[in-house]
Design a protein around this nucleic acid. Structure first.
Lengths: 330, 330
DNA sequence: TTGTACGCGTTATCAC
DNA sequence: GTGATAACGCGTACAA
């Protein structure tokens, strides 16, 4: 390319970067022609090597099986592309030990920053300097030891809306089913918010929490039976589910028990997957603004990359309660 | 790093690459210590720039909203990581015009090869040399003008299994609902296979095809009503759905019509999403071996990267028919 | 066995 | 205005 236009590579570089300034019309035209002729594009790799920036954003996701993660990923990816960044994806597959490995791998490719939706617990704990000095934004799962920007659903508000809706609908015995807390901030926050809601409605409303793993269908069934039993005394009972995966488990349990949403048990779940309207009478849900969360996270990070200073920001986005048959009155 | 061990960088390079040969114990130890002390890792970027290989695989997906794509992505990503490759993801968001752009962007980062689950139609048509001479493997959607490896479900066999099951179950009026063909090979192949199945069962069984877009709920409802009308004359009717997205539309239509799977209409769908067991009496499905497809695609590509020669391969993986209530007899 | 010099494709800093 | 030149961090001849 250098010689294709008969000029030095420095001139070519100038043409591409500050094309407005410092160019004689004669040479500018020559370079422009050569660029067009060769369909020339500067190598991002070499640019990264020299200039130090890669226009790459590393996105680490705890579990790509989770539709929430995918939805966020999608929003983030869109925003990144619009801003001229490419996304390098790393899926942890819920394997905690690879968190550090993932960051190092991505850092090796000189990613300009990280979007992290990670496990946030245990040994692989990521401290600030593991990021190799690059900015990061945390999504959904907060991390005590790290002061970076944080984007998430407004969990307390969402839980309040869900509980409030159920209580208004006449439900008095609530069971919040969550994946095992394990120190994951979003799970802890939702569980705590559930407790607050119950406390706020004392003593009319009673609540319990059940931690559900994937292999405990018997325990889950038992928990639902116990809940229903408490409801016998004229008090209606409802389940709150912590995310779409738990919702799936609860729906399976209901099928096993031969029960129906909105009849034996009311239901509201966090996350509003596309299939929620199709199960039973339709599942009520707190829809997360996943696309906005992803977008916001990416935007947030890109602002930092452009030099924005200031203390870590916390962006809590509101959920939207979608009422369907599963939480119907009577 | 060069000076940290008090040696030249060439020595360091030798230590990392051919550590067995050509090393004096004295210096080897010095370098090893320095490497450990600095937690030194060679920059993949610089390696790619000089050596020409990046250990990066570009994965282009037509629409990350499609759970099929995600499942494949997951399998591919796993296989890539196991082989020491990193995945760069590019989502087209069904925007046809970005196919070329995606490939160029990825090629700019020196990806060693491509895994393509692309649109395969229209203007952005990708010819072999758009790949910048790098190997590629096509997933799910075949591409006439390109002879690369191809991995996919065995569509004819899967369709045969689905139709055979329905016919055995006494269904005589079949409706295959697919997304608009638009020259997408997998849709065409399934539709053609459906035609073959109907032909094979002539004249006992009748079949029609309906192309469903997202915004045609009225047309879809009408198609289902027409199907049911044909069934009146004592012939049972069933719907076959071309993928999970169509299945969602069909399920919505059934809800609108107040009909029930397995009663008014039988049903079998391609793809077996996790929610399939939870809708109505459970949706029968042809489960695609998505994980294997992704894995196979990645493996396939990595073999090529390791120098495997030979003509393009076609790897067709078998689906698995999962029978649930929606296709039940009577 | 080890160090030197060069190239990979850019950008930035000087001279001209 | 523009062309050499160093540097980014690595691999690899080639020389020592």
């Amino acid at each position: 390319m250098a010689k294709e236009a008969g000029v030095s590579k420095a001139t070519v570089s100038r043409f591409l970067n500050h094309r407005d300034r410092l160019l004689s019309d004669d040479i500018a035209a020559r370079v422009e022609a050569a660029v067009a002729r060769l369909a020339y594009t500067p190598s991002p790799m070499a640019q990264a090597l020299s200039h130090g920036r890669s226009r790459l954003i590393g996105l680490i996701v705890a579990d790509i099986t989770n539709p929430y993660s995918v939805a966020v990923l999608r929003g983030a990816e869109k925003a990144c592309q619009e801003a001229g960044y490419l996304v390098m994806l790393f899926n942890l597959g819920n394997d905690i030990d690879r968190e550090r490995e993932a960051i190092d791998a991505l850092a090796g490719y000189q990613v300009d920053g990280f979007i992290l939706n990670t496990l946030g617990r245990g040994a692989g704990l990521v401290d600030a300097d593991a990021l190799h000095g690059r900015p990061a934004v945390l999504v959904d799962r907060r991390h005590d030891g790290m002061h970076t920007d944080f984007v998430s659903l407004d969990n307390p508000a969402a839980m309040k809306a869900a509980c409030g809706h159920l209580v208004e609908g006449g439900y008095r015995e609530l069971l919040y089913i969550t994946e095992p807390l394990q120190g994951v901030s979003s799970r802890r926050e939702r569980t705590a918010a559930f407790g607050d809601c119950i406390a706020a409605h004392q003593p009319r409303v009673a609540g319990e929490v059940f931690e559900s793993t994937g292999e405990d269908s018997d325990a889950l069934d038992a928990a639902l039976r116990a809940l229903r039993k408490r409801a016998r005394s004229g008090r209606r009972a409802a389940v709150l589910s912590g995310n779409a995966i738990v919702t799936l488990r609860v729906a399976s349990a209901m099928a096993r028990l031969g029960w129906h949403f909105g009849v034996e048990l009311g239901f509201v779940g966090f996350d509003d997957p596309e299939w929620a309207p199709l199960i039973g009478p339709g599942l009520s849900a707190v829809a997360q603004p996943t696309d906005a969360i992803g977008r916001t996270a990416a935007t947030c990070l890109i602002e930092r990359l452009r030099g924005l200073e200031g203390p870590p920001r916390q962006l809590l986005l509101p959920g939207e309660l979608v009422v369907r048959g599963s939480s119907g009155a009577a």
